[in-house]
Simulated scan of single mutants.
Amino acid sequence: MNFKDAVVLVTGANRGLGKALAQAALNAGARKVYAGARNPAAVTLPGVTPIKLDVTSEADIAAAVQAIPDLTILINNAGISSGGGVTSPEAIATARLELEANFFGPLALSNAFAPTLKRNGGGAIVNILSALSWISLPSTGTYSVSKAAAWALTNGLRGELFAQNTQVLGAHMGYMDTDMTAGIDAPKAAPADVAQAIVTALEAGESEVLADDTARQVKAGFGLPRSAYLGAPLGA
């Protein structure tokens, strides 16, 4: 799927990776880039068209479908992280919030725009996932649950939309240098580098992109006798 002359919608495009993806789409020659945000006034990137889009709002999603009948690339980037474990007192409430934004949002948007993409030749859906789709840390338990669900969603969409020629790309990466990770002391990738890796993978017809060293290392570890997602053995 080429970005040249494409019509692109990026959710959560007012900052971080979303803003970098919108810029990368412009750089790659997209004809029009819609920058979705809960508050469209927060979108400051020149050259894009701001659009009000809370991915948990049925009304906002319906309005976006009406506003962008020529969409060819949907990038499900918007998401939240509350920083809680699965055994924390707030785990159920936190998981529900994260699942609404990180799983149900992309599910609703993908289903809503699938007929539009079909009419426009198939197009593409990009789901921004995470290396935390595959592993869980004490501070990311509920977030990992939501991203694991989004990974399964991505694989389901790929199979079910194959017949209408829609490319579905899952993008995995570790920590990025964004507001979401400001308090985390760990190696972080530059959002612009991750965005470019995603654009390159989509244009190459890929179904999955491991956008940084962290994602590549975690995925490579799947073949080990004790993969990283299993954690340390008892008594270690």
Rank of each mutant, 00 (worst) to 15 (best):
M1K: 14
V7R: 15
V10A: 15
A13M: 11
R15I: 00
G16L: 14
Q23I: 00
G29K: 10
A30C: 12
R31Y: 06
R31L: 07
Y34F: 14
A35P: 07
A37S: 13
A37F: 13
V48K: 05
T49R: 06
P50Q: 03
L53C: 04
S57D: 12
D60Y: 10
I61R: 12
A62C: 02
A64H: 13
V65Q: 09
A67Y: 14
G83T: 09
P89E: 14
A91Y: 10
A95H: 13
A101N: 09
A101T: 15
A101D: 05
F104R: 06
L107Q: 12
A108M: 08
N111Q: 15
A112L: 05
P115K: 13
L117N: 13
K118W: 03
A124N: 03
A124D: 10
A124S: 15
V126R: 10
N127Q: 06
N127F: 02
N127I: 00
S130G: 12
A131V: 02
A131D: 11
W134T: 03
G141I: 04
Y143A: 07
S146W: 11
A149L: 08
A152Q: 14
L157P: 08
R158S: 07
E160M: 02
V168W: 04
G170F: 00
H172A: 05
Y175G: 04
M176Y: 12
M180A: 12
G183V: 05
A190G: 06
D193H: 07
V199C: 04
T200D: 13
A201F: 09
L202E: 05
L202M: 03
G205I: 00
S207Q: 10
V209F: 02
L210P: 09
V218Q: 09
A220T: 01
A220Y: 08
A220L: 01
L234C: 00
G235P: 15
A236Q: 12
